[in-house]
Write a protein that binds this DNA or RNA. Structure first.
Lengths: 213, 213, 213, 213
DNA sequence: GATGAATGAGACTTCATTCAT
DNA sequence: CATGAATGAAGTCTCATTCAT
């Protein structure tokens, strides 16, 4: 999780101070964009990062490139969590925990939602590019949960992503009203469960347990 | 529904040409903002409407005022539909039709979602200002559907609004993938149904008792 | 003073309603420009006058033309007062009363000062166009006062106009500080008196010879 | 007088090129606003300064801030002159030289007059904020001149400022007519002298010649 | 590599003036 | 003649991006 590859774009070895600057910029950017929206100025990001604007543009050719990097970082955290949960023994629990985790994300920021909106996650792109890391991670969670009979069998990964996308926005709308947040989550979670009467069928099939990768 | 008051701001009688321009501007604005986001320029709206920029600003003192008007129009359509459905005899069908209707709205635009995001609909504001027309309309739909036992009794109007908000965003994410759109809707709709085993309780309150589908 | 010619531009006979509108516009313009400066909009003038903007432009082809008319009206009042005073028997008193009258004018408005600044009253234009009504009126006041020995003989009408112009601005600067207003006036007035020792010379030319106060 | 602090805003050390631009902008602004009035566009200032409009706004956040800086520069020159004169041995000469110096200022520009009009110099503000540099400098000139009996004892600093304000406007009105300028100055100057008969009184009180402070 | 000053396109908005009703 | 809706030039200001130091 903390290996260098966790910082996107850092593969080409950078002088340590340059790397430090890059990270400071990313951290500042996430904070600024989360607080003030994506229209916040690059100047403000640079200021918070404690670097000159020129330095920011040396690391990220474009504001858009910076946003992409921020989004990628955010997505990575989500993928990491999905991967961690995929190792859980209880497939259903893992699956629903993933959704429940969204409760904690993004009290009010637009970074996460926009991160999901970009990055080729929309349903159309998903068909042509099924190699998206988040897709892969979610596919594992979903498959196991479905096989264990705890998730309705008729949902696919794109459905899941759309639902998750909607849920995150709903959380943003619900704001700090805990009750509302909770019940909105419940609605989606219950909607993902198998309809009454179908529920029991496959339950015993997970004894072996499978590993990713 | 088609009375003049359906066009926001038309209450003060305007010369016919002025009214026509006002409408053209609103239509253009909805289209432009839907296509390019709320950052699209007022110039572009004026150009598409075929009026000078001065005319736009004569009708709407501020870009924000224009956005408000666009949002209000969009909300009004939603409220109108909710009101229409409130007159349906089958409470459950009316309720779920309302949600199903969101399938048709907003294939990809940000106007509708942002319209919902503004206008004091967020959960916190809802507590203090329960007089919102959409709230009232949805409250009617919800109450009746709950009394008929077709919607789980533990959801409140704010939960519903958050869910709807999320669903609309999910629709935007799903894009034109009809299957995904449909299944995402299904998840939310099923999540709104009473959990298995609770279902029967209130049944008798709907005289004849009607089955969905 | 109240003859039709007092309203500049009304010479061509206008229908009575048109004339009334013209006057209402002028009155409104003076009030608006005095309160908000010459940058106030023509729209605001029209609104206060209770006429449409089109009507304003029918009467005054240009904002500048309107300003000229307002200025002319203000100047006329000044000229009228000078003419009235010219009929006073005490030449010195008449002269100084004219200056003292400026105390009352323009507590804070820019119309009067700008009226003076325009209308060919600057010293250079005065040389080529000595037919300015205000010049003529002030010339009479000055000449008589000088002949009576109560005003220093070395000042000319342009000097007087410049002094008056400055005094009016000084009044604007002094604001509502009565003491300051009064003393500033005193300085100019005393500066216009004949220097000590020169005073008596021309005395005999005023038959009776009168003392101030 | 020529220390760096004479350039307003240069206190924070700027890169030499930035400082040069700042000065070019200020010089251009003074010239443009003097020639065309305060309504002249910032674009024109930038053009004359040979910088982009963005550079102008980097140095001065607002047109108003630019005007303030221009005004402050102009005021500083006036204060500097007053301070210089305050060191003259002949108090009366110093005092009247100060006024005579206004002859040279501002043949036709509005910058100086508006600089005086702003900056809390109006008579009302003066009462509450007597710490204005110009006030202090003029107070010194005035006090000494009054003590030496060469200026009437009943004028205060606000009176003086109002008079000066008026005089500067009068100069603007007089334009290039040297005679008029000179005589208008004479009127004010003579008005500031002690009235005949009072003149001698305090004279002997200055025998040794005293230094301020 | 880092810095931050400079740039200028482009956004929003105002207002004098015109013209169809 | 009166009206006020329409027009668009022009103004202030922002901000992504470039470039000299």
């Amino acid at each position: 999780m903390t290996s260098p590859s966790a910082v996107p774009g850092s593969e080409r070895s950078l002088r340590s101070d340059a790397l430090r600057n890059r990270i400071r910029i990313l951290v500042a950017a996430e904070s600024v964009f989360a607080a003030k929206g994506l229209d916040a100025s690059t100047d403000e990001v640079a200021r918070l990062a404690g670097v000159g604007i020129g330095t920011l543009y040396r690391h990220f050719a474009t504001k858009d490139a910076l946003l992409d990097a921020v989004f990628a970082g955010r997505m990575q955290r989500l993928v990491d969590r999905a991967d961690d949960l995929a190792r859980e023994s209880d497939a259903g629990r893992a699956f629903f925990d993933f959704f429940a985790g969204l409760l904690g994300e993004s009290p009010r920021d637009r970074v996460f939602t926009d991160a999901l909106a970009r990055a080729g996650l929309d349903a159309e792109a998903a068909a042509t590019r099924p190699d998206n890391p988040l897709h892969i991670a979610m596919a594992q969670l979903l498959e196991r949960a479905q096989r264990s009979g705890q998730v309705r069998p008729d949902v696919s990964v794109p459905d899941l992503v759309s639902s998750m996308f909607g849920l995150v926005h709903a959380m943003r709308h619900a704001g700090t009203a805990t009750r509302v947040r909770l019940r909105t989550l419940t609605i989606v979670v219950d909607g993902l469960r198998p309809p009454a009467g179908t529920q029991r069928r496959v339950k015993a099939s997970v004894p072996v347990g499978r590993r990713r990768r």
